[in-house]
Design a protein around this nucleic acid. Structure first.
Length: 262
DNA sequence: AATGCGAGCAACCGCGTTTGA
DNA sequence: TTCAAACGCGGTTGCTCGCAT
């Protein structure tokens, strides 16, 4: 019966008011974070310590980033979720300013929605494959487009002098569906830059047919934990365009007969 | 204009883990 | 070492808002 102070007097629930937010922010400014139950008792807030903690971490904390997730962030979420599953907090550690709650909500509202629309179990390997082979390449294209659009100025990612469209490919055997430059095809790798400035390399050089013959399992990654970090692409474009080539996915699925029937 | 419905998100709950007395 | 309190995580709920009818 640890933190169930709800047994006690009139604790407030539901949405926070401006006054409550202000109280919480003031208290933390004076006393710092932590000791949430003490905070709840001492601050004058009629909330549980848990509620205060959640409100602070998910909403009031100054470095909480709000707004749509960039393609880079979405890409990271998909990649990390494929490795770690629903370890939201762990995933959130690699997306600065994003909370586990936000990432969890993203997964449930966007990713699982896609799975529902495709009538695939979002936990199935089939869906994981679809994500890797059709969604993630789309995000890469977006990332790339945004880095190009801002290439000459402040971009901090992917645009090494030798990084052209053709240098991109997918993780775990999945190639992008289309990749701009058709005149050449170099090594297939995705380079993104983490916060410390080091490059993260997603490397693979399978052909599309090889890919289809060897659909990836949704584990393993070429990234090490240490290498994972916030993607620093600025100027990222973000529209809520989750269109990720359903037609192409179904076509590929039918042609290659991978996966069960609907 | 009113109503219904679904998507998105903030907040709550239960439980396992950590901390410290 | 033990145990209660606090913390943190992941799942779930429920509210709000926008859109369709």
């Amino acid at each position: 019966m640890s933190d169930n102070q709800g047994a006690m007097v009139d604790l407030r629930r539901g949405p926070w008011t401006l006054e409550e937010d202000s109280l919480l922010v003031h208290y933390i400014a004076l006393h710092g974070e932590g000791r949430w139950n003490l905070l709840a008792r001492s601050s004058g807030l009629k909330r549980t310590g848990k509620s205060c903690r959640l409100r602070w971490l998910n909403y009031l904390k100054p470095d909480v980033k709000r707004g749509n997730l960039s393609p880079e962030e979405q890409f990271l979420i998909l990649e990390l979720h494929s490795r770690w599953g629903n370890r939201w907090s762990r995933i959130a550690q690699h997306l600065p300013g994003r909370t586990d709650n936000e990432i969890k909500n993203y997964w449930r509202t966007r990713v699982q929605k896609q799975a529902r629309q495709m009538k695939i179990d979002s936990n199935s390997s089939l869906f994981a494959d679809a994500v890797r082979c059709f969604w993630m390449p789309r995000l890469l294209e977006k990332m790339q487009a945004s880095s190009y659009s801002s290439s000459s100025s402040t971009t901090t990612a992917t645009n090494n002098s030798n990084t052209s469209c053709s240098s991109y490919s997918m993780v775990n055997g999945c190639l992008p569906l289309s990749c701009g430059n058709s005149n050449e095809k170099k090594s297939h790798e995705v380079v993104v830059v983490n916060q410390s400035g080091s490059e993260l390399m997603f490397n693979n050089s399978l052909t599309s047919s090889e890919m289809m013959n060897e659909m990836p399992s949704s584990n393993s990654s070429l990234m090490d934990d240490d290498e994972l970090g916030p993607l620093l692409m600025e100027n990222s474009l973000m529209e809520n365009d989750e269109s990720w080539a359903m037609d192409e996915f179904w076509h590929a699925r039918n042609v290659h007969e991978w996966g069960g029937g609907m």
